[in-house]
């Protein structure tokens, strides 16, 4: 039976299972070691282009390490075993994203990725990571799922889709596989919180306050990324607007 034909409980049991994840990733990761076709050649990049790509990938690693630590911390907070199993699949996805970006950095000649990531990380993104992990450490499921599976995933989805549209073919393939995962994670966050908010509309105000706290950190991260890449005002894509539009779907007005 197709997932959309199932009642809500069976639908959740199906889409939050290892089996569902297994079938989903088989489709787009089969025969793609480290997220891309092995035969795609390394693109010719000048020093400036290479340096900009390294900075961007380092910041992706910050985001993915944050997502890995947050999603693994969320497993113990999950309210039921279906959510726990879904989050376990997300833990593996986030670890894979970190791995493919680190692998791409290695292909670009970075030998000490950890040091390079520390050196190039945007302060706004680090502040976001710290806030996210504080929600997880405090055991605040709603705020942590919102920050991780709605805000962070929306930010990444916006950035990765834009980057994939202008990236070299190798980086593009890696990003497309990551985006496919992110959409699943975003779906979980919106579905879980959407159902909770329908049952407890009083939680809207609290999550709107969380959003009001996180939005500036996300927008600051975008600005810092543009500056690191040396993009002039007229050349900057409208990622902030796209992000705000994406995160708006839950109707939480900051």
């Amino acid at each position: 039976m197709e997932p959309h034909e199932l009642d809500q409980d069976d639908f959740i049991a199906q889409v939050q299972s290892f089996e569902f994840w297994f079938e989903a990733v088989e489709g787009y990761l089969g025969d793609k070691p480290y997220g891309r076709d092995a035969e795609v050649p390394e693109p010719p990049l000048d020093d400036l282009e290479r340096d900009a790509l390294v900075t961007t990938l380092c910041n992706y690693c910050v985001g993915e390490a944050a997502a890995l630590e947050a999603s693994s911390g969320l497993v113990r907070l999950a309210p039921n075993h279906h959510a726990q199993i879904f989050l376990a699949t997300q833990v593996a996805d986030e670890a894979r994203h970190l791995e493919v970006f680190l692998h791409r950095l290695a292909e670009l000649g970075i030998t000490d990725a950890r040091a390079e990531v520390e050196r190039r990380a945007n302060p706004g993104l680090l502040a976001f990571k710290e806030r996210l992990l504080r929600f997880v450490d405090a055991g605040d499921w709603e705020a942590a799922v919102f920050a991780q599976n709605v805000v962070l995933e929306s930010m990444e989805d916006t950035v990765f889709r834009f980057h994939a549209s202008v990236a070299d073919p190798k980086t593009q393939q890696v990003l497309e596989g990551v985006v496919a995962d992110e959409r699943r994670h975003l779906g979980f966050g919106e579905n879980d919180l959407g159902r909770r908010l329908a049952r407890h509309p009083e939680d809207r105000e609290r999550l709107a306050a969380v959003r009001a706290e996180l939005d500036p950190l996300v927008l600051r991260s975008f600005e810092e990324a543009y500056e690191a890449l040396g993009l002039g005002r007229d050349d900057r894509p409208s990622l902030g607007r796209d992000y705000l539009h994406s995160v708006e779907r839950l109707g939480l007005t900051a």
């Binding site: 290892f18 390490a65 890995l68 693994s72 376990a88 833990v91 593996a92 670890a95 894979r96 970190l98």
Partner: peptide, 14 residues
């Protein structure tokens, strides 16, 4: 080690 433990997390969930 984090990445390995991520695979183990998914194995255990399975």
């Amino acid at each position: 080690s984090k990445r390995f433990l991520a695979t183990q997390t998914l194995d255990e969930a399975r």
